[in-house]
Design a protein around this nucleic acid. Structure first.
Lengths: 105, 105
DNA sequence: TAGTTAAATAGCTATATGTCTATTTATGAG
DNA sequence: CTCATAAATAGACATATAGCTATTTAACTA
């Protein structure tokens, strides 16, 4: 959980995830979208992989990374649900706080 | 955006947010739930405030902090929507990827 | 005016992070 | 086997983070 949010706290890594949203991509292809050095990008990919947000598969001499959407979803939505966010689902305990939902007078 | 995720990447700060979910609370009351020093807690609150996730109002010699649910919601859900998460709303561009949604053959 | 209390700030330390260059490892091509 | 290429690892450095103790600031109380 902490590792996911930590991974998401860097704009470069968020952009990597967005890239991978459209299609899996090799480390090199990902790197082409940025101006950092190859090892720097490798480190960013490592953080994302450590958080479980991406997965790499070796194909020839490249490593193809793909987004693990389910992990992103579980972390983000799971946390959101704790706060009663994410859908029309009321959080079962605690406070309704901000947005009004007084539909049952 | 980065600041929000960075703030969320620490478990202590996530617990603070959960505490404030039920009711606003003074810095001291918040600190009572943890075993860190007063200045350490003050620093955590400062990070959360910087990210816009909480707001403090001085009342007497205390500062009452409250959760800014809308900021949390905007950051979390806004980012989620980028990935087509968060509701039955299709992300308009990119990949459907993980969970199937092939309702229109 | 002192004294007490709540919280922030200052200053310190150890560890983590983001970046780089240089090197290593692994794979494919000749 | 040698060379070229893709990516990871090693090592260095500057900055950021999380924690602490000690101090300061702000506000109430006697």
């Amino acid at each position: 959980m902490s590792e996911v949010f930590k991974a998401l706290s860097d704009p470069t890594r968020r952009r990597v995830l967005e890239l991978l949203r459209s299609t899996p991509m090799s480390a090199g292809e990902i790197g082409d979208h940025f101006s950092f050095s190859q090892p720097t990008m490798s480190a960013h990919l490592s953080v994302l992989k450590q958080a479980g947000l991406i997965e790499g598969e070796k194909v020839g001499k490249q490593i193809i990374y793909c987004l693990k959407m389910s992990v992103l979803e579980d972390a983000l939505m799971g946390f959101a649900k704790t706060f009663g966010l994410g859908r029309d689902e009321d959080a079962r305990a605690g406070a309704p706080s901000s947005a009004a939902k007084e539909i049952k007078p």
